[in-house]
Nucleic acid binder design. Structure first.
Lengths: 152, 152
DNA sequence: CAGTATCCGGTCTGATACTG
DNA sequence: CAGTATCAGACCGGATACTG
């Protein structure tokens, strides 16, 4: 078990986790990003899929654009009217591991009865994939073996 | 870039990500779990570290206990009065990879100026560690190579 | 389609104070 | 220490209606 401690090694205010939570820690934002990671780009597609009130969705998208997780672009296919679309930036895409890790956690711990509705495999080997900690030379490290290193 | 899609392959309502967001998707809960992962266990330690209003903290802890992420126990060291403490369950501990992945995302994308305040190494080899997707036989898979598999 | 404008009711928030 | 009680204000969520 984790040893008792009176204080975290890094105060929460300095921890970027706190900032990340400010950004994406609400009921809709993570779900919007989920949809975006699956390729949804248009206002009404987000809206009908998530059921988000339009006012809220509008605000969340605006905020995600301001924060640089989504880019608002104008898309025009021939013979059709131009439409805005919201596509993930690199910064937004980089959240994919977080979202997948959380999804897998939910599949394992929140939905014990059935099979998880979704899983992930390596396109090449077709093997199942899970999230883990690895060293830079590719060895997997169990989470009990992690040590925290502070910068001074 | 992610191909355009009108709908996610799994509707959000069936996705356990949505349930997970309901559980931990608010300003305080993730931060409480962060502290817990660092070994904080006591009400006032959470409170003074996070600055959470006591009423809120009380409610969040209660909720986390109900959901099975924390267990409320009574701890007594000799010569001292018994105290309640909140310790992570296995279910709560299992969120560690999610929290670390999000922390590392924040360190990389939110804090471009400085060094990240914290990093993680393998206790044994002392090498730096990052979160990644791996196959069951331990090969790392880049996130572009993930394929979604739906259960029918 | 892709939004903005408004409005109302509810929840969250945070401060203060009090108890075992 | 570890909470509960109370209260005012901010913010959020959802419905409805209206525009380009």
């Amino acid at each position: 078990m984790i040893p008792l401690s009176r204080k975290s090694p890094v105060p929460p205010a300095q921890c970027n986790l706190a900032k990340a939570v400010d950004l994406i820690g609400d009921r809709w934002t993570l779900l919007i990003l989920r949809s975006a990671l699956y390729g949804v780009r248009r206002f009404d597609d987000f809206q009908s899929e998530l059921g988000t009130p339009r006012t809220i969705l509008s605000g969340r998208l605006k905020n995600l654009v301001e924060q640089g997780l989504l880019a608002r672009r104008t898309y025009k296919s021939e013979g059709r009217r131009a439409r805005p679309e919201y596509v993930l930036t690199d910064k937004g895409e980089a959240l994919r591991p977080v979202l997948i890790a959380l999804t897998q956690w939910g599949d394992h711990w929140l939905d014990c009865d059935g099979q998880p509705p979704i899983s992930f495999t390596d396109m090449q080997s077709r093997q199942a994939v899970h999230t883990a900690f690895v060293t830079d030379d590719g060895r997997e490290v169990p989470s009990e073996n992690l040590r925290i290193v502070l910068r001074r």
